[in-house]
Simulated assay, not measured.
Amino acid sequence: MSKSLSERLAAAPVVPLIGEDDAGRAVKTAEALAAGGLSVIEVVMRSPDAQKGMEAILAEATGDLIVGAGTVLTLDQAKSVRASGAQFIVSPELVDEIAEYCLAENIPFYPGTMTAGEVQRAYALGLREVKFFPASLAGGVPMLKAFSSVFREMRFMPTGGVSAANLAEFVALPSVLACGGSWLTPKEAVAIGDYSKITTLASEAVAIAAQAR
């Protein structure tokens, strides 16, 4: 039986980001990440054909993947990626109508938060898991520790400035659900088809997270 999203993030608390217009490269990148032990993938909607890349991964990629859509900015876009099969949705900011839609449809939603006010609003809407973005600019580990002392039920997905160098510091925090990051899918490696590098980076991230926890 396929493990749930929460079970997978507990086992490997890292969510790699894929930003790729070419569907074939998107599929191979996802498969390379899965080969390295990362099976929860966020495809960022930052280019015209990114949604087609997500659809290709869902339809063609081998391995048991959970694929979500990131950089979702509007309610219409949230509905569109959901119709395309997105299994979770990530936004750079907390938008109430997207949160309300995802809660009503029982879709995992991780909105970006960086202030206590935004975290409190997310809590009031009924969310208990949020993105912390941009993590390095928003205060990093010290800010998450401060949030966690107040918002004891909230769990965070720091993204933005997370790398292999500081991954352990983030995932060691009990309030961190997982870390998101684009360092796992370097553009130069994807461009030349060096998917073994992506698998290596994924394996290293899994090992770092396991040791930190």
Rank of each mutant, 00 (worst) to 15 (best):
V176S: 10
A189M: 08
K187N: 11
V150T: 14
V171D: 10
V150K: 07
L167F: 09
V206M: 12
I198K: 01
G161F: 00
V171I: 13
A202P: 13
P174K: 13
A205Y: 06
T200R: 14
T200Q: 15
A202M: 13
A202T: 10
M157D: 00
T159N: 00
N166Q: 12
G161C: 02
A205R: 09
L201C: 06
R152Q: 15
A209K: 13
A172G: 09
M154K: 01
A164D: 15
G180F: 04
A172H: 13
V176F: 03
G181F: 07
T185I: 07
S203L: 07
V176E: 07
E153H: 07
V150L: 10
E204Y: 02
A202L: 11
E204W: 02
N166K: 10
T159L: 01
S203P: 05
V162R: 05
V176C: 05
F151E: 08
L173F: 07
P186G: 05
S163R: 11
L167P: 06
V206Y: 10
G193C: 12
A207W: 06
A164W: 01
A165L: 11
D194N: 15
N166D: 06
F170V: 07
M154V: 00
G160L: 03
A207R: 15
T199R: 15
S182H: 11
A202R: 13
G181R: 08
S148K: 09
E153G: 01
P158C: 03
V162D: 03
R155F: 01
R155L: 00
E169F: 05
M157R: 05
P186W: 03
P158L: 04
V162N: 04
S149I: 01
A178Y: 06
A168C: 12
S196H: 13
A207C: 07
V162C: 02
A178Q: 09
C179F: 08
V171K: 13
V190A: 10
E153Q: 14
M154T: 00
C179I: 08
S196C: 01
S182R: 09
S203K: 15
G193T: 07
G160D: 01
R155H: 14
P158T: 04
P186H: 05
K197Q: 14
A209T: 08
V176K: 09
G161T: 03
E169V: 04
D194W: 06
V150P: 05
W183A: 04
A205K: 08
V162T: 03
T185A: 11
G193F: 09
T200P: 00
V206Q: 07
S149R: 14
K187M: 06
K187S: 14
L167N: 09
G193K: 12
L177Q: 13
G180K: 04
K187Q: 14
S175M: 13
E153L: 02
S175E: 14
L184G: 04
E204V: 13
G160N: 08
V171A: 08
N166T: 09
L173T: 05
L184K: 04
L167C: 08
V176G: 05
F156A: 03
A205P: 12
I198C: 01
S148P: 04
G181P: 08
S163T: 15
S175P: 02
L167M: 11
I208A: 06
F170K: 11
S149P: 03
A189P: 06
P174N: 04
L184E: 02
S182A: 13
W183L: 03
L167G: 09
K187H: 07
S163P: 06
F156K: 04
P186K: 03
G181S: 06
I198E: 00
I198T: 03
A189K: 15
